[in-house]
């Protein structure tokens, strides 16, 4: 064993093999990039604004979005489906705005969502962003509306 697998052979396998896997990975990245671009709905200004609102307020550090984030608050990748407003932008914005305005609930022993000062435009953007995310092809994840 030690004669077949010398240090320099082990080193060459490491460098050569790694380059091979990096090349495969880059190739699949290009394909996946094109797949995402061609399978997602068009990006509107509202959706882009909504993503900035989502990021500026660090929503990901309580909620999950498509299962990624913190596990302190509910999944929001399918929240518009759960609320039954996926196909109704006006109702979605109203529902989300109403929910956010009511926070924090202040109920003792209940997890508290902070109050975020958002303009109507920003609330609309956020709900459009979440509706957009809900329409991504997530390979039928999550298993049910509970998220």
């Amino acid at each position: 064993m030690s004669e077949i697998l010398t240090k320099s052979r082990a080193r060459n396998v490491f460098y050569g093999g790694s380059l091979f896997f990096i090349a495969v990975f880059v190739g699949l990245t290009v394909q996946s990039h094109n797949y995402v671009v061609s399978t997602t709905p068009a990006l509107t200004d509202e959706v882009i604004l909504g993503k900035h609102v989502w990021e500026r307020n660090s929503c990901i550090n309580c909620h999950t979005l498509h299962g990624e984030g913190a596990y302190f608050a509910p999944e929001v990748g399918n929240v518009m489906t759960r609320w039954g407003v996926l196909d109704d932008p006006d109702a979605a914005a109203e529902m989300l705005g109403g929910w956010m305005d009511a926070q924090p609930s202040g109920v003792e022993g209940r997890r508290q969502m902070p109050h975020f000062e958002l303009t109507d435009e920003e609330k609309r953007g956020l709900s459009e962003f979440l509706r957009w995310a809900d329409q991504m092809n997530t390979q039928s994840w999550p298993p049910n509306d509970a998220g």
Partner: peptide, 27 residues
Amino acid sequence: KWLYVIVATALFSGILGTGHHFYWIGL
């Protein structure tokens, strides 16, 4: 010698292993 073997298995599995994060995010 064993270090090279270990890191080879790390990268050979880990690079494409990134795929386990790509199941449900639109890829």
